[in-house]
């Protein structure tokens, strides 16, 4: 079975720039009405960490689901 991941976005630090949304190869993230990034399709996450690495605000953690 494919590994699953949890994406934790610390909304206090997120400035809603959208880089993570644009970079995600699986379209896991979307911008909320509050202009914050939110994981809307976490089950599709492949754990590539691109969103985490690109986040200028260090607001994202990607962890393998237990």
């Amino acid at each position: 079975m494919a590994k699953k991941f949890d994406i934790d976005i610390f909304s206090k630090w997120c400035k809603g720039c959208g880089l993570c949304i644009a970079i995600c190869p699986k379209k896991v993230l979307e911008l909320s009405e509050q202009v914050k990034s939110v994981p809307v399709r976490p089950d599709d996450c492949i754990g590539c960490h691109q969103c985490d690495n690109v986040c200028p605000d260090m607001a994202i953690t990607v962890k393998e689901r237990d």
Partner: peptide, 24 residues
């Protein structure tokens, strides 16, 4: 990180944040 100062001063999406993250 000195988390008490976060979020940082840089504009939303600023490339400098990506660099700080990579350095850390």
């Amino acid at each position: 990180l000195r988390t008490k100062f976060m979020p940082h001063i840089w504009c939303p999406g600023c490339g400098h944040g990506i660099i700080m993250h990579a350095i850390l």
